[in-house]
Design a protein around this nucleic acid. Structure first.
Length: 644
RNA sequence: GCUUUCAUAGCUCAGUAGGUAGAGUGCUACCUUGGUAAGGUAGAGGUCACGGGUUCAAUUCCCGUUGAAAGCUCCA
């Protein structure tokens, strides 16, 4: 019979050949590395018997994520087997492969200590050495439950009970160990080579905080020790890229427990970065027809009852402050204030869109375990705006917002497209109490956003349950150094708040109409944006944002007068300059400036004084030779202009 | 918020099987005036996060609080 391979070629194989046999037929090397097969798009075991005319891809660890996952999933079974050998009383739950390795959740009274992890890893190595063949078998639902009850695996029983009636249930067996599992798996435990258990922590059974907390162990494995080493190095590098470390090293921000958790303070350098970013985005918005306002961070609780936030968002707000007859709250967002500003006067259809922007401080009571440097804070500065549009303007206006996002992230900051993803955030229909109740509004809004994304040919994915309570959103998601998935820019469609606040404009027909509101943030919050910026650039900020753009350093005391002269010229031209005329060697000063990640260093010695020049050193390139101060200023101005 | 772990000099970390502590770096002074990633010497600097308990004695053991880390949960 024939099968079609991934490259489109046809291969003649014997009737009923398994994926592994076909891999062997193609090449012994491929068979050695094969992890699973992808047959007509479905992931299958190597033992799977292929049918006539199917499409087959042999997945190895190297060539396919499914191959990796089969490899890691097998490793997770090896870990579970090791744990059952060492601690038979620990109960199994689930243990899937993830994008980077695997985990397994266990129910145990005693949490895993580092010593236990070491012992488990050692036992895993034994199991690998034993090279136990991995066999698959299936049972009826009843028999499966019986088997798991016999083994006292209560969680497995619960899982099987939820599988559809009458379905055959598959198990994998390696030596004395049997686990409920859909597969696929490798052929034997010896196929796994380099392993490492990375961490253990708590995790709720089935991801529900009302359930019991289990103990999870994360791990990774590779076919080669060198690959494992490389991965561990990469994790180490990610730690070096963590904005909290860079933030401390470069004196960007600090926290203090007397101020409180989630309440960072910006040091002078961080404040400079923030000021530049905030001016930058505000200027851009003004050019695009936004009107900026200032509104208070404190409001009467009635405002949020009117907006609906009180019902949907109370838990995330700081508690009410009672004063005289009023009940005040710190605002978690600015929408209600901006609604009132719109309502302050009558609007004609000709005035729309009206774009109200603000760099506004918001306060959210983030759970203590969720605060993280500048990434998740309890007080943030949102780069917020509300666009009041006619229904016929929605598309165009959302398009403008998306274009602005592109301009900022791709053109001005030059972030690679791979560093962020567009997400269409939809409501979860099964969880209706979380959202404003208006099916028609949701359907319209969701399909409009989807259409715009498609028209603009933007790659995006859809995520149910991620909408705001008042409407769907287009979120731009980034992955942080810690592998957290967070939103930075967002663009949200809202039919609810205009209703709540009874917003109107007078149409061409002379009658009152309801506008639609678009909530949007480009930098997200200044705080989160800076955390992203620091991680993306590893602290090597481009010249236009660098808090210190030029550091002037003297070689001896003889250049101090000239140094002042150069400084004055650069400051005159608007550059942020620092001097280093300490009694230190030039090598020492350069080392320090490099570590502070200053983009330009000027070395001044007698030579330069004599020739009225400056010795220029760039952060990334090193010494680029001498030039006049005027030449340098021109060069720097060009670089700032181009945001290079 | 939950599970686990952690908190010693500005920073990075040793240490004390319970008898109030040390290194490197940074800081200050002096020597050195040097050409593109660390010159030398000396000195200052700590209620060992905070509050209780056990003990003749607690930085060390126990409890609590606060803060931090990893993961979970949450995230307009």
């Amino acid at each position: 019979m024939k099968v079609e391979l991934k490259d489109g070629s046809q291969l003649e194989v014997k009737q009923g050949a398994s994926v592994l046999e076909i891999a062997q037929q193609i090449s012994e090397g491929l068979a050695r590395n094969a992890c699973c097969g992808i047959v007509n798009g479905e992931v299958r075991d190597l033992r799977y018997e292929v049918r006539e005319n199917c499409k087959l891809e042999i997945a190895t660890f190297e060539n396919n994520l499914e191959g990796k996952k089969a490899y890691w999933h097998t490793t997770s079974h090896i870990m579970a087997q090791a744990i059952k050998r060492l601690y038979p009383e620990i109960k199994l739950t689930i243990g899937p492969a993830i994008d980077n390795g695997f985990y397994y959740d266990f129910d145990t009274e005693k949490p895993f200590t580092p010593e236990m992890l070491e012992a488990i890893e050692a036992e895993m190595k034994k199991i690998i050495k034993e090279d136990l063949p991995i066999k698959k078998f299936t049972l009826s639902r009843e028999k499966a439950i019986e088997l798991m009850k016999e083994k006292k695996e209560d969680y497995k029983v619960e899982l099987i009970e939820e599988l559809p009636e009458g379905e055959e249930i598959s198990f994998y067996e390696q030596g004395e160990f049997v686990d409920l599992c859909a597969g696929p798996h490798l052929m034997s435990t010896g196929k796994v080579k380099a392993i490492k258990l990375l961490s253990s922590s708590g995790a709720y059974w089935r991801g529900d905080e009302h359930n019991k907390m289990l103990q999870r162990i994360y791990g990774i494995s590779y076919p080669k020790a060198s690959q494992l080493e490389e991965y561990l190095n990469m994790l180490e590098e990610a730690k070096q890229r963590d904005h909290r470390k860079i933030g401390e090293d470069l004196e960007i921000f600090m926290t203090h427990k007397l101020v409180g958790s989630g309440l960072p303070m910006y040091l002078p350098k961080g404040a400079t970065i923030r000021r530049i970013l905030e001016r930058y985005i505000q200027d851009k918005e003004i050019a695009l027809g936004y009107a900026h306002v200032y509104t208070p961070s404190l409001a009467n609780v009635e405002l949020y009852k009117t907006s609906g936030h009180w019902d949907h968002y109370k838990e995330d707000m700081f508690p009410v402050m009672k004063m005289d007859a009023e009940e005040m709250v710190l605002r978690p967002m600015n929408c209600p204030h901006h609604m009132l500003i719109y309502k302050n006067k009558m609007h004609s259809y000709r005035d729309l869109p009206i774009r109200i922007g603000e760099l506004a401080h918001d306060f959210r009571y983030e759970a203590s375990g969720n605060v993280c440097g500048l990434e998740r804070v309890r007080q943030m500065c949102q780069n917020d705006a509300h666009l009041f549009v006619r229904p016929d303007q929605i598309k165009e206006e959302v398009g403008r917002v998306l274009n602005l996002i592109k301009e900022v992230y791709q053109k001005d900051f030059g972030f690679s497209e791979s560093s962020f993803q567009y997400r269409l955030s939809l409501r979860d229909k099964a969880n209706k109490e979380k959202y404003i109740d208006n099916d028609e509004m949701w359907e319209t809004a969701e399909s409009q956003l989807r259409e715009i994304l498609k028209e603009m040919k933007i790659d995006f994915y859809e995520a149910t349950g991620e909408a705001a309570f008042y409407g769907p959103k287009i979120d731009i998601q980034i992955k942080t150094a810690l592998n957290h998935d967070v939103t930075i820019p967002t663009c949200q469609l809202d039919f609810a708040l205009p209703e709540r606040f009874e917003l109107e404009y007078i149409g061409e027909d002379g009658k009152a109409h309801r506008p639609v509101v678009i909530h949007r943030a480009i930098l997200g919050s200044s705080d989160r944006f800076i955390s992203f910026l620091l991680e993306e650039t590893k602290g090597n900020l481009p010249l236009w944002i660098a808090p210190v753009q030029v550091k002037i350093m003297t070689i001896t005391d003889n250049q101090k007068d000239y140094e002042k002269e150069v400084e004055a010229k650069l400051k005159q031209a608007g550059f942020r300059v620092e001097l280093d005329d300490r009694n230190e060697k030039i090598g020492y000063k350069i080392r320090e400036a490099q570590m502070e990640k200053v983009p330009y260093m000027l070395v001044l010695g007698d030579k330069e004084v004599q020739s009225k020049s400056v010795g220029v050193r760039k952060r990334a390139e090193g010494d680029i030779g001498a030039m006049s101060v005027e030449e340098l200023i021109e060069k720097l101005q060009k670089e700032v202009e181009e945001k290079a």
